[in-house]
């Protein structure tokens, strides 16, 4: 049997909901590159207009406090996006950005800038490695989901005795 071990690289997916203020980590997927990851993220994670803005980033670019940081160092500081999970059970939420020469320094700067949360978890990732849906698409990218009301449970009016199904 062929083709078992040919998975594409992994990308982390962040979504801003329609009424949300910030991008939240949703989950991950496999794609050939960032463009592909954006298209797949829309179809996998926003089939019911769960969001109106997507960010994707290669999983290998994400560094977490307490773990081995991603490689890569620049001579001049570059921008890192910072995500915080306040406590276990929640998603990582975007809280801002810091400038640093590498991921380890970015994590330290993030703790200084946004505070330390003993039960929390911090992620940093280079801003330049983030691909966003805004860059190329705005409304039309998500609009196709709007007229598929049959995807919602409220589309079906069942007999009164069982309508709480």
């Amino acid at each position: 049997m062929t083709g078992f071990h040919d998975q594409w690289p992994q990308y982390e997916v962040f979504i801003k909901s329609r009424n949300g203020l910030e991008h939240k980590h949703f989950s991950s997927l496999h794609a050939t590159d960032g463009q592909h990851a954006l298209l797949l993220a829309r179809d996998v994670y926003t089939r019911r207009q769960e969001g109106n803005s997507l960010w994707v980033v290669a999983a290998s670019d994400v560094s977490q406090n307490g773990a081995e940081p991603a490689a890569g160092r620049s001579d001049t500081p570059r921008q890192f996006e910072v995500f915080l999970r306040l406590k276990p059970g929640l998603d990582h939420k975007h809280i801002g950005s810091v400038d640093a020469c590498d991921a380890a320094a970015a994590l330290r700067s993030a703790e200084t800038a946004f505070g330390q949360y003993p039960a929390g978890s911090l992620w940093v990732l280079p801003s330049a490695s983030v691909l966003t849906s805004e860059a190329e698409w705005s409304g039309p990218f998500f609009d196709a989901m709007a007229d598929k009301t049959y995807r919602l449970p409220t589309f079906y009016q069942l007999p009164a005795a069982v309508n709480n199904m």
């Binding site: 995807r151 919602l152 589309f155 079906y156 069942l158 069982v162 199904m165």
Partner: peptide
């Protein structure tokens, strides 16, 4: 969140 649609469309089809 998505399963509710699945069950209801099935029952609706049978009705």
């Amino acid at each position: 969140k998505e399963e509710s649609f699945h069950q209801r469309q099935g029952y609706d089809l049978l009705v």
